Amino acid sequence: MNFLIRLGVPEMFALWEGLRRGHAEGTLPKQEEELYRKWGKTMKLLAGNPFHPSLRTHEIAPLSKRYGMKVWQSYLENRNSRAMRMYWVYGPDRRDITVIGLEPHPEDKKNNAYDKVTLSDI
């Protein structure tokens, strides 16, 4: 059961293309090379199974409420204070997943930290 991962949201497409191009040219700084590698692996796992155990995918209720549709979070990494998280939604087509955000994990979800997460318009 494979999904098509869409980066149709302009900000996500531009970020991925910049990383991809820099990787191909060998010009990415170490931190961006690491992001490219981790994000690519995460999207590959997500396409095959959005609930793959290493993704630790779960719905983020405050974001779902704000955007009026289920917003999911998947891990790019773990055990890191600034661990990156990918935010996504199903659609627009039945077998599509659209990435709408890539941000460090909010510091303290008990203090409305998800209010500070800014996602692209869908």
Score class of each variant (00 low, 15 high):
Met86Gln: 07
Ala24Trp: 02
His105Tyr: 06
Gly26Ser: 06
Asp96Pro: 07
Ala47Leu: 06
Thr42Glu: 13
Pro104Met: 08
Pro50His: 09
Ala24Cys: 08
Arg82Lys: 14
Trp72Asp: 01
Leu63Glu: 00
Gly26Glu: 08
Leu63Asn: 02
Lys44Ile: 00
Thr42Tyr: 04
Asp96Ile: 02
Glu34Arg: 13
Lys38Phe: 15
Thr27Tyr: 03
Leu35Thr: 13
Asn49His: 07
Leu28Cys: 04
Ala24Asn: 03
Glu32Asp: 15
Ser54Gln: 13
Ser74Phe: 04
Ile97Thr: 07
Glu59Cys: 08
Ile97Trp: 08
Lys44Glu: 14
His58Ile: 01
Ile100Asp: 00
Arg95Thr: 00
Gln31Ala: 14
Ser54Ile: 07
Gly101His: 06
Ile100Ala: 02
Pro53Lys: 06
His58Asn: 09
Glu107Pro: 00
Pro92His: 08
Ser64Ile: 04
Arg94Asn: 02
Ser81Trp: 14
Tyr90Lys: 13
Leu76His: 01
Pro50Cys: 00
Arg94Pro: 04
Asn80Thr: 11
Gly48Phe: 03
His105Gly: 05
Asn78Ser: 13
Glu34Lys: 11
Glu107Asp: 12
Thr98Cys: 08
Val89Tyr: 07
Ile60Glu: 11
Tyr75Ile: 01
Leu55Ser: 09
Asn78Leu: 08
Thr98Ala: 06
Ile60Thr: 03
Met86Phe: 04
Val89Lys: 03
Tyr67Met: 10
Met43Glu: 14
Asn49Lys: 06
Gly91Val: 01
Gly68Val: 03
Met43Gly: 11
Lys30Ser: 13
Met69Gln: 15
Met43Pro: 13
His105Asp: 01
Glu33Cys: 07
Tyr67Ser: 05
Ser74Asp: 10
Gly68Leu: 04
Gln31Phe: 10
Trp72Ile: 01
Thr27Asn: 05
Met86Asp: 09
Leu45Arg: 14
Glu33His: 05
Ala24Ser: 10
Pro29Gly: 10
Asp93Phe: 12
Met84Glu: 05
Asn80Ala: 15
Ile100Met: 05
Phe51Arg: 09
Gly48Met: 05
Lys30Ala: 15
Ser54Cys: 08
